[in-house]
């Protein structure tokens, strides 16, 4: 037993500052947040009563919050599909050896290095809703290419506006998904492909039975990472439209609640966001931990 302590005492001591800090600032604050969400702290005055899940019920019966969830859903759908399609397509085209591959790769990936605030400046302009003579941005391009029918009000559209907001997000994250898929493609042993070819498998069959199964863990990673970024979307919307009802998502609604000192409401929205992300992340973390254990 003493030997045991001698062995694992020092390492535990070294990681303990991190454990304590994260214990307070991640787990402690999450607990604090949940407790605020169950109080009636709707102003600067301290909370008076414990109200249980009343705030949650109020939120889920409120049209405004449901509208923000619906916006988030549309955004997430387009964001996920867009990044997966472009990311896969680019990786697939680059995988089999392309001259100047490095240049294509670097350019496709570079938007990742830019902040949503900075890209919001230019995308706000590109997604300008004016049409016809007054059109600028993308609408102007459509107009001058004779594709005037493609002009649309972008994010000002009441139903599909959130799909337009997904465009800059797709622009920024597709390169990242490409990098993930590319590492997936390149992790497939050449012998596997060779073997499939020897067996006389057609190109499509090889993809269907060799490549896709090998890529599925990567695809899952990409979905989880992009998905959890999408649920948190905030910067981009603030930069393009500011916090307005039209493009409201839970994260921007939270900002409005917090700045109007409705702490209970902002904490409630935060807990819901956390749960949404946890549903996505926790199974994934467990899955990866298991996979790693099996690997050792």
């Amino acid at each position: 037993m003493r030997k045991g302590i001698k062995n694992w005492g020092p390492p535990l001591l070294l990681v303990s500052p991190t454990i304590i800090i994260l214990g307070i600032f991640v787990y402690g604050l999450i607990a604090a947040n949940i407790s605020v969400s169950m109080s009636d702290r709707h102003s600067l005055k301290p909370a008076e009563n414990f109200v249980g899940i009343d705030n949650y019920i109020a939120l889920f019966t409120e049209d405004r919050f449901l509208h923000s969830l619906c916006n988030l859903g549309i955004f997430t759908l387009f964001f996920l599909v867009g990044t997966m399609v472009f990311g896969f397509l680019w990786a697939w085209m680059l995988d089999k050896g392309v001259t100047a591959e490095g240049i294509f790769r670097s350019v496709y990936l570079f938007p990742m290095a830019i902040s949503f605030v900075a890209s919001g400046v230019v995308w706000r302009w590109l997604l300008n809703s004016a049409e016809g003579d007054r059109a600028s941005g993308l609408n102007r391009i459509f107009e001058s290419m004779g594709l005037g029918f493609l002009q649309n009000p972008w994010w000002s559209d009441p139903t599909w506006g959130m799909a337009a907001i997904a465009l800059p997000a797709i622009w920024q994250l597709s390169g990242y998904v490409m990098a993930l898929f590319l590492s997936g493609f390149r992790g497939i042993p050449e012998e596997l492909r060779e073997a499939a070819r020897m067996d006389g498998a057609s190109e499509w069959k090889m993809y269907r039975h060799v490549i896709f199964p090998q890529l599925s863990p990567v695809a899952l990673s990409a979905l989880i990472i992009v998905g959890h970024m999408s649920l948190k979307v905030f910067d981009l919307i603030m930069a393009i439209t500011k916090a307005i009802y039209q493009t409201e998502v839970p994260a921007t609604y939270l900002w409005i609640a917090l700045t109007s000192n409705d702490y209970a409401k902002s904490a409630t929205i935060a807990t819901i966001l956390l749960l949404l992300v946890a549903i996505l992340i926790i199974p994934y973390l467990i899955y990866t931990a298991r996979a790693e254990k099996a690997h050792r």
Binding site: V15, I19, L22, I30, N33, F234, L258, L273, V277
Partner: peptide, 25 residues
Amino acid sequence: DWVFTFILFGMFIPYQAIMTPLVQM
């Protein structure tokens, strides 16, 4: 392994989930 997962989880939380108490703190 638990310690590792304990630390890792902090990477994925939406920071909004801690923002209200953090601002109060």
